[in-house]
Nucleic acid binder design. Structure first.
Lengths: 311, 311
DNA sequence: CCTGGCATG
DNA sequence: CATGGCAGG
């Protein structure tokens, strides 16, 4: 038993992933900007470069716990946005525990759920669609990767839609080796699909590709989500012919993030990361109308992203 | 990975400690009283049978997590009640994590904390006093019992004050054997003190003594808190000369409880247990003025109890 | 700093 | 059905 009369101070927070960087070294030199540098979103473009009108709207959102997200009104936002297909990551919810608000949603009669085999409330992705896909599959066809409910693939008439929650390399990069294996195998999976039919990949790819894709690139080169290995994995996807739709349309746009840690008031300061993407097979790029970051939508530590496509 | 499109029903809640008893057997025969049978508390008596005025006020409260209890305003109630000594059980809080609201409370300059060695946030008792005790000790002097922060003893000029959080026998009575050892050793400890100076024992003794001390005695004879063994342990304390101050004053008072499970809306229905006590050495009984159950005070699954004593 | 599980009550 | 601690992010 511990005992005593007085109490001393708790240890200070350690330099985290997205700490105010420089301010951690020189104490007391708080150099936060007075006003956060926001990314102000222009209206959605509904026409592609080749003049076609968008006829497919897809939204992807890492909800960080579907039940909490539903309670916070995530579905109200979804009803406003009204995408044709809604992809969710980190649902953290066994099928039997899904809230009725979402299982009974009449706008999306076709619903698909994947969750982790072992750990309840870990990982998990979902796809909700207004129209019925031709076929839906789960995982990437490799036993070692398919136990954590990370991928759903839906085949539509003119394209595959893949939603993914890519494994986090974790604190201390303890899972970076696994992640590298994943990156190779996942790319192989996508390439196989791509020879059959073009694809849209969306979800939390758990990597910020370039320095422009996170607020503090210098301080995060050894942290999960911005290691050279993870960035190279993303570069390999592009080299294989897939296109980062947001960066394609907005090559110079800084301060455009889809994730902010809950810690240190990061979201209010827009100290974030772009971890969520729509990647397109090159043959779909002419039909790309817009790729949006909905950074005002609350309910998770990620915000949703939306793609407008003419297919 | 688990997958699928539809969801079935979750399992129903099982028959618990304090289930509505009979209603569990014959389904659909909901025999809850329309209005709960409350114990309406008369005003405090401030004079003892032998005509002396109360000059010592002690409050005991199992707070079920001190931090949550502070947030819910427990300290506001304490300031109203203004006891000379405040005893708390199940603080579930390491000393370094204590809220400043309580560590800096000027009304109680003398504060004593005991917490579990191993498991953080488990068990834990505290004593706060307006006047400084002559001496304060922790535990009951037996290594095997003193690792869980369950007992603080304060010596005042004319009596010992012992506050205790007695080990719960637990679901399936997995800790009943340990509890029986505890009961024997704890009684030995109290008896040793009692030969030196009379004592007041307060706290969560984790037993309802007689059938009158809980709403559903029939259904709980095999449940923690109302087994024959635990009840016998309490009887042994009385046989050793200690007096249950509440029952001494109110021998016939039913529906007087200090604990209600958070489940099944038990508190609203007053389906409760009397688990919290003030026990007195027999020589203190002539000075007993009142022993109160403050069943309107909220902030925990237990309510506070208060003793008025002339010492 | 949030989530969802878990042990405990 | 609450608490606190934990892993995970």
């Amino acid at each position: 038993m511990k005992r005593g009369k007085k109490t001393e101070e708790a240890a200070a927070a350690d330099g985290e992933n997205d700490s105010g960087s420089a301010s951690a070294k020189k104490p007391k030199k708080t150099k936060e900007p007075e006003a956060p540098i926001l990314y102000e979103d222009p209206p959605d473009k509904m026409t592609s470069k080749d003049g076609r009108s968008a006829n497919m709207k897809i939204t992807s959102w890492n909800v960080d716990g579907l039940r909490a997200w539903v309670k916070k009104g995530g579905l109200d936002w979804v009803r406003e946005e009204a995408p044709d297909v809604l992809c969710l990551q980190e649902t953290k919810c066994a099928e039997k525990d899904l809230p009725a608000e979402i299982t009974s949603m009449p706008e999306y009669p076709h619903k698909y759920w994947a969750v982790s085999d072992d750990k309840e409330g870990y990982s998990g992705v979902a796809m909700l669609s207004k129209t019925e896909p031709l076929k839906v599959t789960y995982g990437i066809g490799k036993e070692e990767h398919d136990k954590e409910g990370r991928v759903i693939t839906a085949e539509f008439p003119t394209f595959f839609l893949v939603t993914a929650y890519v494994p986090n390399a974790s604190r201390g990069l303890v899972r970076l080796d696994y992640r590298k294996t994943w990156d190779v195998d996942f790319q192989a999976y996508l390439t196989e699909l791509d020879v059959q039919k073009p694809l849209v990949l969306c979800g939390d790819l758990n990597v910020a590709h370039q320095e422009i894709d996170l607020k503090n690139p210098k301080g995060n080169k050894k942290n999960a989500g911005f290691t050279p290995e993870e960035r190279e994995g993303f570069s390999q996807l592009l080299a294989a012919g897939f296109v980062d739709s947001f960066r394609e349309l907005y090559p110079e746009q800084a301060n455009a993030y889809t994730f902010w840690t809950y810690m240190m008031n990061s979201r209010a300061k827009n100290v974030g990361w772009r971890l969520d993407y729509f990647l397109l097979s090159s043959s779909l790029v002419p039909g790309l109308c817009d790729s949006k970051i909905r950074n005002k939508a609350m309910g998770s530590d990620h915000c949703p992203i939306t793609l407008h496509l003419a297919v």
